[in-house]
Design a protein around this nucleic acid. Structure first.
Length: 410
DNA sequence: TCTGGGGTCCTAGGACCC
DNA sequence: TCTGGGGTCCTAGGACCC
């Protein structure tokens, strides 16, 4: 019998902030930015949630609901560090671990009973060791499928354990709102409500055929989910299977909408450079470059271009992004720009010999640039402007970032 | 209320090919 | 001179997740 744990850290970002500043404990805390910034809540403390503040809420709205809350920008490096610590603790319980995001993981504990005892005992130990080694609380859902484990950890919050016994999945799910099913969001919920389906139990009573005709491929998976099965889609994959990313993107929302062409161009170039760098870190090359534009009214377009050879070279990414932007920008103020690299290929892809040698030379040169950026900051070397001559002439060094001078921040 | 940033997956239409 | 059919690639948009 399969035994899957879903471990979900409680108010993760807020809890990490509390470790660094215990005076925050018990107070309404919002991580995500200043209350007058464009942005949304990343995490809210339980005290803040009492006021209706929750993640994904616009910061300005959160401020209106709870002006006395403490608003923090947050520390992504700290969260990554603690995520690694969490991973370390989990690995002691099972070699089959998959971090599903920065603050949640799936573990396969099938066959560990002799070592760890029955599931509830193992969960109890996990709680204790997690608290002792990271200072953090988590909630644990246990079931024989990933999906039910995920739903039950949600029901166990905060700091609880919930084990759904084999065979009891449908009974556990039936009284829950359809929205509790992972993959059912606002839109699907509304569509289901329109059909008079509000609870998972209502869904389970429907026949597969009518679900499929209404919701396509998805409906079929939905029918299985209502019964607690992992059938179809992401939940069906093996726990712990490491895969290369399928796309890499960066985007930026301006504090205020801008129609300043030079500023838009510089932002686009900076984003493309970040994308290029991440491609090199993964040893990947992209064959499709896409830009995204969002205007003041929030209308959003994406425009893509497929290259005849995959690339990981900043300049090429920048120039394709630039061309797409110029061809498609309507000249009106822009709220957001983004650069996206898709159709990713591993280094040994289908490039011809000449092309792959050229890519290789560039990769070496750019990795040197990446190292300088590591030491002296992102702005120490910029390839973002003046794209005419050869590589050497295109590197503009920022005087403040020159090797030999004291780098900033040290 | 005025809506981030980084992803995954799905759909649907048109081009193109056999 | 009344309109095939399937496969694959490309593009755009959208739902959803944390």
């Amino acid at each position: 019998m399969k035994i899957i744990f879903h471990v979900d850290m409680d108010a993760f970002f807020v809890s990490v902030e509390e470790l660094f500043d215990p005076s925050l404990i018990g107070k309404p805390v919002v991580v995500g930015g200043r209350p007058d910034q464009r942005g949304v809540v990343s995490a809210a403390s339980y005290a803040a949630r009492k006021f209706g503040v929750h993640s994904a809420l616009p910061l300005r709205t959160a401020y209106k609901l709870c002006p006395q809350a403490i608003f923090l920008d947050g520390h992504p490096e700290r969260y990554r560090e603690y995520s690694h610590k969490v991973h370390g603790v989990l690995q002691r319980f099972s070699p089959v671990v998959e971090m599903a995001s920065i603050d949640e993981a799936y573990l396969d504990l099938t066959g560990t009973e002799r070592l760890l005892g029955p599931p509830l005992k193992a969960a109890h130990r996990l709680h204790e060791e997690m608290k002792r080694e990271t200072g953090l609380n988590c909630s644990i859902g246990i079931a024989r499928s990933r999906m039910v484990a995920k739903v039950s950890s949600d029901q166990a919050k905060p700091n609880g354990v919930l084990w759904i016994l084999p065979g009891q999945e449908a009974r556990f799910l039936a009284p829950l709102d359809v929205r509790r099913i992972p993959g059912v969001g606002k839109v699907t919920e509304k569509n289901l409500h329109a059909l008079g389906i509000r609870k998972v139990g209502d869904l389970a009573r429907l026949d597969e055929a009518s679900l499929e005709s209404r919701f396509g491929k998805w409906g079929l998976a939905l029918a299985g989910k209502a019964l607690g099965e992992d059938a179809g889609g992401w939940f069906d994959s093996e726990i712990g299977a490491e895969e290369d990313p399928k796309s890499i993107s960066h985007e930026h929302t301006f504090d205020q909408d801008t129609a300043d062409a030079a500023r838009l161009d510089a932002t686009l170039a900076r984003l493309a450079e970040k994308v290029g760098r991440r491609l090199r870190e993964h040893g990947l090359y992209s064959r499709t470059v896409q830009v995204k534009l969002r205007y003041s009214d929030f209308s959003t377009i994406t425009r893509a271009h497929t290259l005849d050879h995959a690339t990981g070279i900043d300049i090429e990414l920048i120039e394709h992004a630039r061309a797409l932007f110029l061809k498609n920008w309507n000249g009106k103020p822009v709220r957001l720009v983004g650069v996206h690299a898709g159709s990713l290929e591993a280094a040994e892809g289908q490039m011809n010999l000449l092309e792959s040698e050229r890519q290789e030379r560039w990769r070496k040169a750019l990795e040197a640039v990446d190292k300088i950026r590591d030491r002296f900051g992102e702005s120490s070397v910029s390839l973002a402007s003046g794209m005419k001559g050869d590589y050497a002439e295109r590197v503009h060094e920022n005087p403040e970032g020159l090797p030999g001078k004291a780098p900033r921040g040290h």
